[in-house]
Design a protein around this nucleic acid. Structure first.
Lengths: 163, 163
DNA sequence: TATATATATTATATAAATGTACTATTTTTG
DNA sequence: CAAAAATAGTACATTTATATAATATATATA
């Protein structure tokens, strides 16, 4: 068990010392932080044998899931939640490995189109079985209906975050 | 609205290209990543006027919530989900600002005890109103019962992550 | 056309996070 | 008791991430 009990203990003390502290939202925030860290570390562990880290994998998956097969750097930054300065570095790394390709856009020549190379797609599909196993394992304590319910509640929570 | 719709669109394409992809858990993972980022950025924005960043604030809050008022660096690392190497840097920063204090432990002389200074406690209590406002705002789209339900499901999800 | 806006990149500095190796102290155990 | 093992902490190097400003180019618009 991931020891969230000690976190709850600390929240109890905090509320005793500062009664206005909004315990429920604070608990949610700490749970999400805690879960995020575990997910991130797990993913990095799974990806390491393939020479990728989590952000790089994410970029590849954004491209894999794009309808057209291409995305501009700014679209990619938006999709992956990375700052644009980071995208240049990350896409450079992926280009150097031959996993993605850059090409100028025909309709707007300010833009660059990024796409998976066949090598990138092959790498992705070689590691997807491991990722699928990981994802299935991560969700294993929840029934399908609980997963749906959780998804619904998280979306509602998310809707309150976007000013 | 935080545009999660485009993420779902990409997941749909991904599942079409790779039918074994576990869509539900993957959706949960991406939601959590997305939410975590917004929470993290929001917190940093709120804390900036006080000269703190999110990790530093977290450390102060761990101490504020500790029953004894002191924690060893390794306890703090564990509580805050930071690697021990990071804790040295962060606690140095907080020490230099006079917000926390170091002192040797009496019972185990390998240990060091970290505690909030009165200055640290004062800073914390000066910013807590803003944090409380933020937390309340972040949870505003969920009823109390939905918050409880979400908390319950997140804990169950978490229980599946700790190998 | 002149001006403003959008896109991408580069350069630079800084901050944040991690990994590894090392020291000191305490505890274990042979 | 002495040697080995465990624990806690730190120091250093490296990697990763962010912030900012500057540049180049393309597009939009007044």
């Amino acid at each position: 068990m991931s020891d969230f009990a000690s976190t709850e203990q600390r929240l109890a003390v905090t509320c005793r010392r500062y009664p206005d502290f909004p315990r429920r939202p604070a608990t949610l925030v700490r749970l999400i932080k805690h879960i995020h860290k575990l997910l991130h570390d797990d993913a990095n562990l799974t990806l390491k044998p393939y020479g990728l880290n989590h952000p790089q994998y994410n970029l590849l998956m954004m491209l894999y899931g794009s309808a057209s097969g291409t995305m501009s750097p700014s679209e990619l930054a938006d999709a992956a939640g990375e700052k644009s300065a980071n995208i240049t570095r990350l896409t450079n790394e992926l280009c150097e490995k031959g996993l993605i390709a850059r090409s100028g856009s025909a309709d707007d020549r300010r833009k660059i189109e990024l796409s998976l190379t066949s090598q990138g797609q092959a790498l992705l599909e070689s590691l997807l079985p491991d990722i699928c196993t990981l994802l299935a394992k991560q969700g294993r304590h929840l029934t399908v209906s609980e997963q749906s319910q959780l998804e619904k509640l998280l979306k509602k929570f998310l809707s309150g975050l976007a000013d």
